[in-house]
Write a protein that binds this DNA or RNA. Structure first.
Length: 419
RNA sequence: GUGAGCGUAGCUCAAGGGCAGAGCAUUGGACUGUGGCUCCAAGGGUUGGGGGUUCGAGUCCCCUCGCUCACCCCA
């Protein structure tokens, strides 16, 4: 048996319905907030991610699917969507059209990681980016939007946490202070954290190991090191969130895995998710556009993990059921049933044929199992008389109607149900 | 990359050295052209794969593959 590739999962129809629900709701909210869709390639030049995400991040170092095309160009399957959006923004000079760009995208991303709950190698993200706005009102506006989206999806137990990561002015001094605090305390840290001291010391702060938590319990917090502009920005974001009535918490230890983030960072967490508990995350990236060769342009964006969101969705989405089900008995009636099928479909009535030469009972069982509302039976007798039996499956009553009246009668019934 | 747990029918799971089973699902029948409830029956398995121990292995041992969860990392 040929199976799918590890971490590349099939999304079967019942799940696909949920994905679609999330996507449709997201589209509605995003477009109400003034975003336009952008569709981008699934592969980019490797260099885009090395420069955008940061060459020493885990994503770039060991999680990307990279390959050469036949000409030898180094490509990567996109591990995230922000860098490609910014690339397109610069490449097409979108800032010439409008100083503010509000773009959203949805589609698969790829990271080579060990799959677990809420984590696959091909996974879907819905993301949005605002380029060209430095105003802290925007940060609050977007956080409000994300909150609203989960609300609209009926997911109530997500919690918003925010933090400020500072900027290129103040973050280094915090980093320095943290390193000094940790100096001499290395023994109490786990192996991973000892490594992190060299790579990304801020990460030590959100280590789950008990010993590390004890060590960092009294560590300095970034809030005390923010420069005036960053502090003011953060204060304003908090004020605006309160104004909008957006519930949030502050997590001074929150760190981002991508290098480009500055100032506001946020995560939306749900306890039901297991270890991979972030359903959405993002923040401000005021340097990225410039770093990728564009004009000095601030940015704010986020991505929603669709798999994780689907895991949180409560009710099973309603299946799309056929409205009419045609059963024919006998060879001549079977031709007539095909004609009727087409007529009904042309009128927009979802109709299915019952295939195979089986007993009427077998056909009826299947109609019942499918959950169709109306069954049309054409047998030899009906064929002779020019009629069709119409059975209402819910009421359990049936009537014999004229063949040439079937479409109009059914149309009336189906519309009456409110389709 | 590391660790743990689990692989038996389409699905959920029994059988823990001695005939591979149940429920659900599927198909047919009871009811010759009428669904749901009920009852009866049938089909469906190299017990993930390979090797070993044994008179005998789904069961014990080794290897391997896969899945799951966690670490890591992150949406």
């Amino acid at each position: 048996m040929i199976t799918s590739v590890k971490g590349f999962n099939d999304i079967l129809p019942d799940q696909a319905l949920k994905y679609r629900k999330v996507e449709e709701e997201a589209r509605a909210v995003l477009e109400a907030f003034g975003f336009s869709e952008i569709r981008l390639p699934i592969a980019e030049r490797l260099e885009l991610f090395q420069r955008g995400i940061g060459a020493s991040t885990d994503i770039v170092e060991k999680e990307m699917y990279t390959f050469q095309d036949r000409k030898g160009t180094l490509l990567a399957l996109r591990p995230e969507g922000t860098a490609p959006v910014v690339r397109a923004y610069i490449e097409h000079g979108l800032y010439h059209r409008d100083p503010v760009a509000k773009l959203y995208y949805m589609g698969p991303m790829f990271r080579y990681e060990r799959p677990q709950k809420g984590r696959t190698r091909q996974f879907y993200q819905i993301g949005a980016e605002v380029l060209g706005v430095e105003d802290p009102r925007l940060d609050a506006e977007i956080l409000d939007m994300v909150t609203l989206l989960f609300d609209r999806l009926g997911i109530e137990d997500v919690e918003l946490f925010i933090n400020s990561l500072g900027c290129e002015v103040c973050r280094p001094s915090y980093r320095q202070a943290l390193l000094e605090y940790l100096k001499g305390k290395e023994e109490g840290l786990c192996r991973d954290c000892k490594r992190r001291l060299g790579t990304n010391p801020l990460r030590v702060l959100d280590c789950k190991v008990e010993g590390c938590r004890e060590v960092t319990a009294r560590a300095p917090e970034i809030m005390g090191f923010l420069c005036n502009p960053c502090r003011e920005h953060f204060e304003e974001v908090k004020g605006h969130l309160a104004l909008l009535g957006v519930p949030y918490g502050i997590d001074p230890r929150m760190v981002r895995g991508l290098d480009y983030y500055t100032k506001t960072a946020f995560e939306m967490i749900c306890k039901r998710l297991g270890a991979q508990n972030a359903v959405a995350a993002g923040g401000r990236y005021d340097r990225l556009v410039k770093d990728l060769g564009g004009p000095d342009t601030p940015g704010f964006g986020f991505a929603i993990g669709v798999e994780r969101t689907v895991l949180l969705l409560k009710d099973r989405e309603e299946e799309i059921l056929p409205e009419a089900y045609i059963i024919s008995l006998g060879r001549e009636a079977s031709s007539e049933s095909l004609r009727l099928l087409k007529e009904l479909r042309m009128e927009g009535i979802r109709t299915e044929l019952s295939y195979g030469e089986r007993s009427l009972k077998a056909h009826m069982r299947r109609a019942n199992k499918l959950g169709v509302a109306h069954v049309l039976i054409i047998g030899e007798e009906e064929l002779k008389k020019g009629t069709v039996v119409l059975k209402d499956m819910e009421k359990g009553i049936q009537e014999e109607i004229r063949r040439d009246r079937v479409v109009s009668i059914l149309k009336g019934r189906v519309e009456a149900v409110g389709v």
